[in-house]
Amino acid sequence: MDVITFHYTISPDDFTRAGEASSDVKSKLKKMGVTPEAVRKVAIAMYEGEINMVIHAKGGEITVHISTERIEMVLEDVGPGIPDIDLAMQAGYSTAPDAVRSLGFGAGMGLPNMKKYSDEMEIHTVIGEGTTIRMVVNL
């Protein structure tokens, strides 16, 4: 079965452009005829991840694999890592600085939202090296 892959490089410290990759994936999925519900789930989950890569890490890479059964997103950042994943997964827990909150993010909903809108989510993190998050939305 064919798998289509898209790759994006997320540049750090460019908050204005954050979300461009998610936007591109969303419009591609729509054109492919993926159901609106699945498009919405992928768009929200990936957008939150992309924002996190800009806020918390020094950018990174996103790879999206699309097959007839599932959409898999792999987000790899070069960042500080997550010291306590259970704590980070709690709604409302955030380590984002006030400057980020004034931009409308850092409410501690990023990771919980990513879990809520994906059917599978795995986090692999190494302190001082980076975090890789794999999310799957089933079709």
Partner: peptide, 10 residues
């Protein structure tokens, strides 16, 4: 800010 429009888009 631009992320308001992005959020709306998603």
């Amino acid at each position: 800010n631009p992320q308001v429009v992005r959020t709306a888009e998603m």
